[in-house]
């Protein structure tokens, strides 16, 4: 599904931060990949590349066989909207939109009519047990509810690929476990998942683990 060949990413700040160095990674359809590594090692950078939010400085990134470098902003945005679902550590809900409206938002950019958006958001929120919070604002929710809203938003478009950047980082362990159970269920449904974590207990339940240290990626648990 995604193939990274010799990917390098250098941020222009100061003398240039080499966040990723010659990364090779192939994620197949249906795989559940855990990305493990210490803080500042380049995990988020990698996930942003996988999610087509950023472009590599060097190397080739293929998404479903297409070279990402050749795609226009419109095409990239379309892919992000339809094929990929993002879950962030700090939830990133739009604070002035209700739970339901946050979940509707990706469908808006796909041109889905208002009524259908509302129904699909409602159904998706029911899946994450938030049917009773439709009209709440994010600030009226607990951390776990926020993350479940964010997951509903990521899933409402029925993406093939779900990317999560430390999804349990801001949650207590019980809530975190609930979220991870959700991911397990997604995996069982056949979705492709890439989840960042620095929690080894989290990592232990993920089938495939890749590690990053100082921008260098290595396969497997070690």
């Amino acid at each position: 599904m995604i193939r990274l060949v010799n990917i390098g990413k250098t941020y222009p700040a100061g003398a240039g931060v080499r966040a990723l160095i010659s990364v090779n990674l192939h994620i197949r359809e249906g795989q559940y990949v855990g990305i493990l590594g210490p803080s500042g090692s380049g995990k988020s950078t990698l996930l942003n590349l996988l999610g087509l939010l950023d472009v590599p400085t060097s190397g080739e990134l293929r998404f479903e066989g297409r070279d990402v470098a050749t795609l226009s902003d419109q095409e990239l945005s379309r892919l992000r909207g339809r094929a990929i679902g993002f879950v962030f550590q700090s939830f990133h809900l739009v604070s002035h939109l209700s739970v339901s409206e946050n979940v509707e938002l990706p469908l808006f950019y796909q041109g889905v009519p208002h009524r259908e958006r509302r129904e699909r958001a409602r159904a998706q929120l029911a899946c994450v047990n938030l049917a009773h919070r439709l009209h709440h604002l994010p600030r009226q929710l607990s951390g776990g509810e926020c993350q479940r809203t964010a997951i509903a938003r990521a899933l409402v478009t029925e993406p093939k690929l779900v990317l999560a950047d430390e999804p349990t980082g801001n949650l207590d362990s019980k809530t975190g476990t609930e979220i991870l159970a959700l991911f397990d269920a997604l995996h069982a449904q056949g979705k492709t998942l890439a989840v960042i974590t620095h929690d080894l207990s989290v990592a232990s339940r993920i089938p495939r683990i890749v590690r990053i240290a100082d921008g260098i990626l290595s396969e497997g648990a070690a």
Binding site: D73, Q74, S77, R78, R80, R82, F86, H92, L105, Y109
Partner: peptide, 16 residues
């Protein structure tokens, strides 16, 4: 700005 980031991540193009 954060809201713009979110919208871009979930499929909004520059034009949107």
């Amino acid at each position: 700005i954060p809201e713009i980031g979110v919208r871009r991540a979930i499929g909004a193009s520059q034009r949107d």
